[in-house]
């Protein structure tokens, strides 16, 4: 193919941002993500009540002036709990994914770069690992380590890491034999330097997309674990736990499950939209 020289791959951060900006859905996703982050950081200032402030006189009220989204059976303000709940959901989602990414990048880059027997051993271990259903694994880990924030993070992180490792290994295989890697070896660069400067930066784009998308998944997972009583423990507010608590009053007070459900849905959707947009923005070939 001739021409279009100037349209060849554009991989700089500026170019990615430029392309991301054009995708309206991705921008919406990004705005929601930023809003969520701000909410969780500013929770003490924007929440009308404290998350554990009980008001026995007004338990299980519907949305009204004092309590915009109503209260739960202990008379706690649902809006405030949702706002504080975003802290937990985001913290666990982000940290769990970050942990998974670290493990995944280390295993994936070693397996992909060295190949051969190292690759074989690592991949077979992951094979065995991935035979265990993820949800079961998560529940087992959470049960074994005990409930709580840190343990939830570890459970989710360990469970999602193999997927990242595989993805990175696959992209590294295509980058490993590029001539610029050979050129780096020809100047006697160490394996570590080659992996960090030549290989990983060129293989990371699909992983970034995957990570963004799975933050949504991780939030869902936190909610699920908490819903089952294995995640965050009361009184710390968490969307999944709130959903679980509200379950018994679902018929009469649907707002107790409706609002946490909407929060989970919106935040998962936002991360997925952002991830989808990033995928298109990071891969110039998909551009039309």
């Amino acid at each position: 193919m001739s021409k279009k020289r100037d349209r060849k791959s554009n991989t700089g951060i500026g170019a990615v941002w430029h392309r991301l900006k054009k995708n309206k859905l991705a921008v919406v996703g990004l705005i929601i993500v930023i809003a969520l982050l701000l909410t969780s950081v500013l929770a003490p200032w924007i929440a009308p009540y404290s998350y554990d402030e009980q008001d026995a006189s007004s338990s299980l009220v519907g949305p009204c002036k004092e309590h915009l989204l109503g209260t739960d059976k202990l008379g706690r303000d649902i809006l405030s709990r949702l706002i504080y709940g975003s802290q937990q959901s985001l913290k666990i989602g982000l940290l769990a994914v970050a942990m998974a990414a670290c493990i995944g990048i280390i295993i994936g880059s070693i397996a992909g770069f060295y190949g051969g027997i190292v690759d074989n051993i690592l991949m077979r271990i992951l094979d065995v690992y991935q035979c265990i259903p993820m949800m079961l694994m998560c529940i087992a880990l959470a049960a074994a380590l005990g409930a709580g924030v840190i343990n939830t993070i570890i459970a989710i992180g360990v469970c999602t890491a193999p997927g990242y490792a595989r993805l990175l290994r696959a992209t590294i295989l295509t980058v490993r034999d590029k001539e610029y890697v050979e050129a780096a070896r020809a100047v006697n660069a160490s394996d570590f330097s080659i992996i960090m400067t030549q290989v990983v930066p060129n293989a990371i784009s699909p992983l970034i997309v995957e990570i963004t998308m799975s933050i949504g998944g991780a939030i869902l997972f936190v909610a699920m674990l908490s819903f089952l009583g294995l995640g965050i423990q009361p009184p710390t507010p968490e969307w999944g736990a709130m959903l679980s608590e509200g379950r018994s009053y679902m018929r009469e007070h649907s707002s107790l499950v409706l609002f946490p459900g909407i929060c989970i849905m919106i935040s998962v959707l936002a991360f997925n939209l952002l991830g989808d947009g990033l995928r298109d923005a990071l891969d110039p070939r998909l551009k039309n």
């Binding site: 791959s9 991989t11 590029k178 001539e179 610029y180 050979e182 050129a183 780096a184 020809a186 100047v187 006697n188 660069a189 160490s190 330097s193 400067t197 030549q198 930066p201 060129n202």
Partner: peptide, 30 residues
């Protein structure tokens, strides 16, 4: 340091994430 190589394909022989001066500095850095 004494023996070097120049590659055929000027597309795949340069790291797309390194600027011109970074690419030239890399051997010196190593």
């Amino acid at each position: 340091k004494e023996m070097q190589i120049i590659f055929q394909d000027p597309f795949s022989s340069l790291n797309p994430r390194m600027s011109v001066s970074e690419a030239i500095k890399y051997p010196l850095k190593v």
